[in-house]
Design a protein around this nucleic acid. Structure first.
Lengths: 175, 175
DNA sequence: AGAAACATGTAAGGTGTTACATGATTCG
DNA sequence: CGAATCATGTAACACCTTACATGTTTCT
């Protein structure tokens, strides 16, 4: 139940409505834990029922400003300190690579070329982000930078790997 | 619907029962697209109904040996050549990192240390795998090596990143 | 006044996990 | 003969996606 903890984490920083949280998800958490609007409102109601958050204020248009409760704050910290369990990873991209040999070499190369390009684009976008975001000293900024660095390293790795894989395929096609 | 295509890919190589496929998933695809037994049998029945695979032979204990059909083979190739769409990535580990600043520095460091260790262990395990697996010339072996290389690079990246993040946290704790 | 933004929700359907349930065959 | 392995399935529940549904407030 990571969505639950993501919401608690954002509310620990400051109170917010579902609408506010949605925007935070779309910006800061989009590359880490994407969530849809419908999922988010549902989870907020469940969190409220469970007493981990509460409606601190109501505003216009039915706006409900949520605040984390003492209990919610404890649950968040408990989760953060929880022993790290490696979660199963699913990658459709890698799955495709597994069977890429079934395609003619030219088509397989085209697929990997697209992946290389996509990774290079992601890397460029993250580099722009790194220089444009106004990084503060708040918890989210400090750790956001750590996460961004991860994204940079991963994109570079993916780009380099795709290039390497293409070379391997080219070698086989010649040999 | 990647599970579907994973099954088609394995059956393209050779016929197999659900039980055989389950073992293949647990070994070769465990790090790419894990699946449970219950999921697998369900999907096999759906694929059979859809005419993408068929029961080629029946054995003892109700064993059903599945073979890919012409239609299934076409669907597999269509999927492989399909334009690459980057899929949303969810990482509980990175999500945790986002809020790691809420923990006392020592605890945050402990979490990252565990991640660094886990990545180093994964890397070591994959290196062993690389030298012990009997690599053939079949489609799965050739591409399995590409995927394995990805795993090696990713594990190394994760280990190095965790180490780097720990240093960053240590700097902040001092400064 | 109309458009954009704010604001929250429900319903249907797909995918995945865990647990339960059952039985046949082979090997020592 | 008993244990391990082979072999397939169902049921309940959690999570996620897409689409639908509705109404208010602010800004130009």
């Amino acid at each position: 139940m990571s969505l639950r903890h993501a919401l608690l984490g954002l509310l620990e920083e400051k109170t917010a409505s579902g609408y506010d949280l949605m925007k935070l998800f779309d910006t800061s958490l989009a590359n880490v834990w994407p969530a849809t609007q419908s999922q988010l409102y549902g989870e907020l109601n469940r969190l409220s029922t469970a007493g981990l958050i509460e409606v601190a204020a109501e505003g216009p248009r039915g706006r409900k400003e949520y605040a984390i409760t003492e209990e919610g704050s404890e649950e968040l910290r408990r989760w953060l300190a929880e022993p790290f369990v490696p979660q199963p990873v699913r990658s459709e991209t890698l799955l495709r690579c597994f069977f890429l040999g079934l395609l003619p070499p030219a088509e397989a190369d085209a697929q990997l070329a697209r992946q290389e390009e996509a990774a290079a684009n992601r890397l460029a976008a993250l580099e722009v982000l790194q220089t444009t975001v106004a990084w503060g000293d708040d918890v989210l900024s400090v750790n956001g930078r750590l996460v961004l660095e991860y994204g940079l390293r991963q994109s570079a790795m993916q780009r380099d790997w795709a290039r390497w894989a293409r070379e391997r395929i080219a070698e086989r096609a010649e040999g």
